[in-house]
Computed example of a mutant assay.
Amino acid sequence: MHADSLRAKEDCSVPETLPSGSLPTGFRPDSARRRPTPSGRRTAVRGSLALSAAVLTVSVLSGCGSDTETAGAASANTYSVETELGTFEAPTDYERVVVTSTALLDSSVAAGVTPVGSPMSFAGLPDYVGLDDDSVTRIGDSDEEIDLESVAALEPDLILMNASSGAGLDDTLFDEYSDIAPTVPVVVGEQDPKGLAAQVGAALDRTAEMDEAAKAYESRAADLKARLADDPEAAKPVSQVRLRPDEVRVMMEETNAGVAMTDAGLTFAPPAEGASVGDGGYVETSLELLPGSLGDHIFVYSTEEGVVDEVADSPIWQSIPAVEAGNVHTVDFEAWMRGQGYLALNTVLDDIAAAYGKQLD
């Protein structure tokens, strides 16, 4: 809980409303420095802050009789979440969760929690999460375009906020989110879907449920690996290719889908001679260099509509050995590239099984 909030409990002589910076909703670590908040971002949530401050005044004054009792009650109604950015408190009785990244949507659903709000592209929710678009409210078109007013209107009990590895709270919208509801940061973008799932499980206090999701995935991966072990086609090297209008990225093992491909026992074709794998787990190249650098099976996708079909008609693409052999498998970029959780990993397993003509439970 905020150090400011605790000091307020110690001094009960003046029954005044606490400033919004002292609201306990965010449960910000004492070691984290608050940064000035742009006035434009405050406007969206100002109404809810006034109500929260009024409620807090009552809560603080009613707790003045015994600091020990108040502290005990708080700990009974919250749980602690240790993150890369500090330790945060979240309410045990949450019912309405908002996630600020589609990467967090996957793992929330896998843990048995359907968020009331999430970013959503023009195409709607990713098919692989298994939710209808109208079951979740759009709070922005992407992770970088969150509408704070939409978040506040949903009256969440808990917010899971995406954060980049190495970032501090001052580099995020933690202050804005925590003025709306208790907020827990989750590090995304590390090409570590299993690690992200574990973070979300802890943030939702559903570690046991996430462990079950992990066990179910590992069992399916082991089953597929066993089924592919006797298939000579599956022993041949593979490639994962992301097509873009101006470049090609050959995605390697250390990517979200690469994790599932490796778990299924597939072997990646090595990067082209002289090429190196970047921090994102991919090799940046061009269409002209693909014919001699890809595996015998290619899993291909693009985030841009029509690009795969356009490239597929080019003479260079048609000259790639895997293309000539009919071993190109077009897959969903949402699960293969953006997906960061067990729902996406299971979808990748399904696509691999289909590519090799296997049945997977």
Rank of each mutant, 00 (worst) to 15 (best):
P245H: 04
E155L: 09
A202I: 08
L160H: 04
K194R: 14
S150F: 01
E149M: 12
E233M: 10
A235M: 10
V248D: 00
P156H: 06
D205Y: 08
A221F: 07
L154N: 02
K194C: 12
R138V: 08
N162L: 04
A257C: 05
V186L: 03
D147L: 10
Q240K: 00
D133G: 02
E190R: 11
A234N: 04
V187N: 10
A222E: 13
D231L: 09
L169H: 08
P232A: 06
P156W: 12
S178Q: 12
A202T: 14
L204Q: 03
K225S: 15
L131P: 00
D263C: 09
L169W: 09
Y177H: 01
I180N: 00
A229Q: 09
I146R: 02
A152E: 01
E190F: 08
P182I: 10
T183A: 06
E218N: 11
K215I: 07
P245W: 13
P237F: 02
V259I: 14
G201W: 07
A216D: 15
I159P: 00
M261Y: 09
E190M: 13
A167Q: 14
E145L: 08
D141A: 13
P182Q: 07
R242L: 09
L173S: 10
S150N: 12
P182E: 07
N256Q: 07
M210A: 00
A153G: 09
D170I: 05
